[in-house]
C-alpha cells in the first residue's frame, strides 16, 4: 500500500466514487425494482398501469448507475473486477436475465397485442424479482468472501430475501409518493409488510459481517471505535421504528390530504440503505475482496485513473443537475404514460 501521493489518493477517490455510484444505483433502481416486485400484488389492470407509469420516465437512467458502478470497478480495479465477477458468474447471469426481462417487458406490455399484456406483466414482475434476488445473493456471497459451503449459501439466501424486501419497501414508499386513493392505501400496506423483512435482512448482514473475518470483528468491537460506530446501528434502529410509527399514522393523514409522511418514509428508507452501506464499507475497507485484494493492489495505472476522475469531476455534477431536472419535470402524482 502506497503511503501517499497520487498512487494512494487516486485509487481511494475511485473507490469512493464507485461506492457512491453503487449506493445511488441501489436506492434509485431499488425503488423501480421494488415496484416491479409489488406489481403482482396489484389486482386491477389500471393499478398496474399506474404503478409502471410511476417509474416509466426514470428506470432507464436509474439502471445507468449500475453501468457506471460496474464500469468504474472495471476501469479502476480491473483485477478485482475479474475476481469478483468470475466468482459471482451465476448470480450475475441471473441478474442480467432479470434486468433484460423487465426492461423489455416494460415496453412490450403496452405495445404488444392486448391479450399478451398479462404475460408481459408477469415477465416484468419475474424479471424484477430475479434481478433483486440475484443482487442480494451477490451481496451475500461477496460479504462472506465467496464462501460456497452451506452456511455461505444460506446467508446469501437470507440477504437475497432481505434485499428484495428492502427494494419492496423503497418501491412502496415511492408509490405512496406518486399515487393516490386506493392504490396509495394499498402501497401503505405493502410498505408495512416489507419493513419487517427489511429489518431482518439488515440485522442478518450486521450480525454476519463481523463473524466473517477476525479483522472485521476487531474493527467493530474494539475501544474506542465501538463508540464512534455506535451511531450507525442506533440510527438504523431509530429509523426502522420511525418508519413503523409513520406507517401507522399515514392512512389517517393521507385521508386528510396530508402528504408529508410520504416523502419522509422514502427518505427514511433511502437513509437505511445508506447507513447499511456505510457500515459495510467501513467493515470491508480497504479490501475489495474480503481479506484478499485491497484497493491499491487492484488499481489501474494512476494516469488512467486521473483520466477517468477528471471526466467524472466535470460530468457528474452535470448528470446530477439534469437528473434533478428530469425528476422535477415529472414531479407530483404519476399520470398515465402517453407519448404526447
Amino acid at each position: 500500500m502506497p503511503e501517499s501521493g497520487m498512487a494512494y489518493w487516486l485509487p481511494l477517490a475511485s473507490m469512493a466514487l464507485m461506492g457512491l455510484a453503487v449506493l445511488v444505483y441501489v436506492v434509485l433502481d431499488g425503488y423501480d425494482l421494488g415496484v416491479g416486485i409489488l406489481l403482482r400484488h396489484a389486482h386491477a389492470d389500471e393499478d398496474k398501469d399506474l404503478m409502471i407509469a410511476a417509474i416509466g420516465p426514470f428506470w432507464d437512467a436509474n439502471e445507468t448507475w449500475l453501468v457506471l458502478g460496474i464500469g468504474l470497478l472495471l476501469v479502476a480495479f480491473p483485477l478485482a473486477h475479474g475476481v469478483i465477477l468470475g466468482a459471482l458468474y451465476l448470480p450475475v447471469t441471473a441478474m442480467l436475465f432479470g434486468l433484460i426481462l423487465r426492461g423489455v417487458a416494460f415496453d412490450f406490455r403496452v405495445k404488444a397485442r392486448a391479450h399478451h399484456k398479462p404475460w408481459w406483466n408477469r415477465a416484468f414482475h419475474a424479471g424484477s424479482l430475479i434481478a433483486a434476488l440475484a443482487q442480494g445473493a451477490m451481496l451475500g456471497l461477496y460479504i462472506t468472501g465467496f464462501r460456497d459451503d452451506a452456511w455461505g449459501v444460506l446467508f446469501a439466501a437470507v440477504v437475497a430475501l432481505g434485499l428484495c424486501a428492502g427494494y419492496a419497501l423503497l418501491g412502496a414508499a415511492w408509490l405512496i409518493l406518486k399515487t393516490e386513493g386506493a392504490l396509495q392505501r394499498l402501497a401503505v400496506r405493502w410498505a408495512r409488510g416489507a419493513l419487517g423483512l427489511t429489518a431482518v435482512g439488515v440485522a442478518a448482514v450486521s450480525l454476519a459481517t463481523p463473524l466473517v473475518s477476525r479483522r472485521v470483528f476487531d474493527k467493530w468491537f474494539s475501544w474506542p471505535e465501538l463508540v464512534f460506530l455506535a451511531p450507525i446501528p442506533l440510527a438504523t434502529m431509530l429509523l426502522f421504528f420511525g418508519c413503523a410509527y409513520w406507517l401507522q399514522r399515514l392512512p389517517a393523514r393521507l385521508a386528510q390530504g396530508d402528504e408529508r409522511g410520504a416523502g419522509r418514509l422514502f427518505a427514511a428508507a433511502a437513509t437505511i440503505f445508506a447507513l447499511a452501506f456505510c457500515g459495510l464499507a467501513y467493515s470491508l475497507f480497504p479490501y475489495l475482496v474480503v481479506d484478499r485484494i485491497d484497493l491499491w493492489q487492484a488499481a489501474s495505472a494512476p494516469e488512467s485513473l486521473a483520466a477517468v476522475l477528471i471526466g467524472v469531476a466535470i460530468v457528474l455534477p452535470t448528470i446530477a443537475g439534469y437528473t434533478l431536472y428530469a425528476y422535477r419535470v415529472f414531479r407530483g402524482k404519476a399520470t398515465a404514460l402517453h407519448y404526447h
Binding site: P57, F58, D60, A61, T323, Y339
Partner: peptide, 12 residues
Amino acid sequence: FLEATFLGIMLF
C-alpha cells in the same frame, strides 16, 4: 446518462 435521462422527457 444523457440519453437515458432525456429519453424520459422525450417519451413522456
